[in-house]
């Protein structure tokens, strides 16, 4: 059994690129609609909450509320873009479109496919996060150069959430189950991670939960970078995000091997 699991792992360091390129080619055909779709939601939050709530809230942690929120929205858009790509689009490629079946008939392994899909979801997350960042920089809520520094963290955030979502994809019998992940995991995470208000506003019990949430780790790095404030515990946050990217990768590969190669 162990031997079969090892055979399902990535065969080498480059097979995943072919999977990534397939998704990129498919995306290129609908790029404009996809970009607009991924940006619309976080932008509505940014301006809806930022302008409306910002009037009442005033300044948060020494900056305008909309500047505070924009950093949260960069991380959040990366989270949602990669989560949705992995649960819906990847599931479709695995099931309805039979794309994975075709790939598995070649020398590409399940691990290669998973890696390619994760890299692709992280790419889309980077696009979405950077898109919000560009709007924030244009409006003067952050420096352009800060955006450049934030980019690797945005990509890592995308990778971590894609990896987590891949477990859900590996286990879900059908699309209907994804709504539970959305409503019970992703949406609460938005409010518990300090994306829309500072974590210290939460009851202390919830603050303990916050410490382990991947979105909180992401925001704790992206926000100081974007607002130009000092970075604290950066190694811890990046390390936590790396764990969220790596551990679920191996777990989901094992689950998918069991599911697809009974």
């Amino acid at each position: 059994m162990w031997k079969l699991y090892v055979a399902a792992l990535p065969a080498n360091g480059w097979n995943w690129i072919a999977v990534w390129r397939r998704n990129y080619l498919a995306w290129k055909k609908v790029a404009l609609a996809s970009i607009l779709g991924n940006l619309a939601d976080p932008l509505i939050y940014l301006f809806g909450l930022g302008a409306g709530l910002g009037m009442m809230v005033g300044r948060v942690d020494g900056v305008s509320y909309i500047a505070f929120l924009s950093a949260g929205m960069v991380a959040t858009s990366a989270m949602t873009a990669s989560t949705f790509e992995t649960i819906y689009a990847t599931f479709a490629r695995m099931r309805a479109q039979r794309t994975w079946e075709a790939i598995l008939h070649t020398q590409v392994t399940i691990g290669d496919i998973v890696l390619g899909e994760l890299a692709w979801a992280a790419t889309k997350a980077s696009l979405a996060g950077t898109g919000i960042g560009v709007v924030a920089a244009t409006l003067g809520y952050t420096e352009w150069v800060s955006l450049l520094y934030a980019l690797p963290v945005i990509a890592l955030t995308g990778l971590a959430f894609a990896s987590l979502a891949m477990i859900v994809t590996a286990l879900a019998p059908s699309y209907e189950y994804f709504i539970f992940y959305q409503t019970l995991v992703i949406t609460p995470m938005l409010f518990l991670s300090g994306a829309v208000f500072p974590v210290n506003q939460l009851p202390s019990a919830f603050q303990h939960v916050t410490r382990v949430l991947p979105l909180a780790h992401s925001i704790d790095v992206i926000r100081p970078i974007m607002l130009g404030s000092p970075l604290v515990n950066v190694g811890l946050h990046i390390g936590a995000l790396c764990c969220y990217a790596v551990v679920p990768f191996f777990l989901s590969t094992a689950l998918l091997r069991r599911r697809l190669m009974p």
Partner: peptide, 16 residues
């Protein structure tokens, strides 16, 4: 969603 040519192109890449 791909053309005939693109299908072959994408598949060939799976064989490196």
């Amino acid at each position: 969603e791909f053309t005939v040519r693109e299908n072959l192109l994408v598949f060939g890449r799976y064989f490196r």
